[in-house]
């Protein structure tokens, strides 16, 4: 096989007149694709507290406790059995543990876990990584 000394010379010289390939993040915004898996948000109105997401989470990052404030039961209708109030649930998401696999959002039967594309989630204070959605 033949050898050519300084094989990359022309390529290297053309790069003298090209812009660097490096992106200027954080000075310019980083783009992510539409399928990018980011932070999980929570819709308390849809949650039925089935705890499916808690069980499926590979990194034990989710807790679904009962909310402190609960709605009062609807007034009993004449001739109808008493309907209990729909229970309200919170969601505690430990972003430090989350591996952003979105398995919880796919498992949720009521689509109460909402997928977003947030990725700039770094914190200096670790306690801020625990998000309490109400």
């Amino acid at each position: 096989m033949k050898l050519k000394p300084a094989r990359m010379l022309s390529e290297v010289l053309t790069h003298l007149f090209k812009k660097p390939a490096t992106s200027g993040y954080p000075f310019e915004k980083a783009r992510v694709t539409a399928r990018f898996r980011g932070r999980i948000d929570f819709d308390s109105g849809k949650c039925i507290g089935c705890q499916m997401c808690v069980r499926v989470c590979p990194s034990k990052a989710i807790e679904i406790p009962l909310s402190e404030e609960q709605f009062a039961a609807p007034p009993v209708q004449q001739g109808q059995p008493a309907v209990p109030a729909k229970k309200q649930f919170d969601c505690i998401m430990k972003l430090g543990s989350c591996v952003y696999c979105w398995q919880c959002a796919e498992t949720c039967p009521k689509h109460a876990l909402i997928t977003t594309q947030d990725f700039e989630l770094a914190q200096i204070d670790p306690s801020k990584l625990v998000r309490h959605y109400k």
């Binding site: 499926v56 989470c57 590979p58 990194s59 591996v99 696999c101 398995q103």
Partner: peptide, 10 residues
């Protein structure tokens, strides 16, 4: 210690 689906991500 993990279920089959959790092991995917592990």
């Amino acid at each position: 210690e993990r279920t089959f689906i959790q092991n995917m991500y592990l």
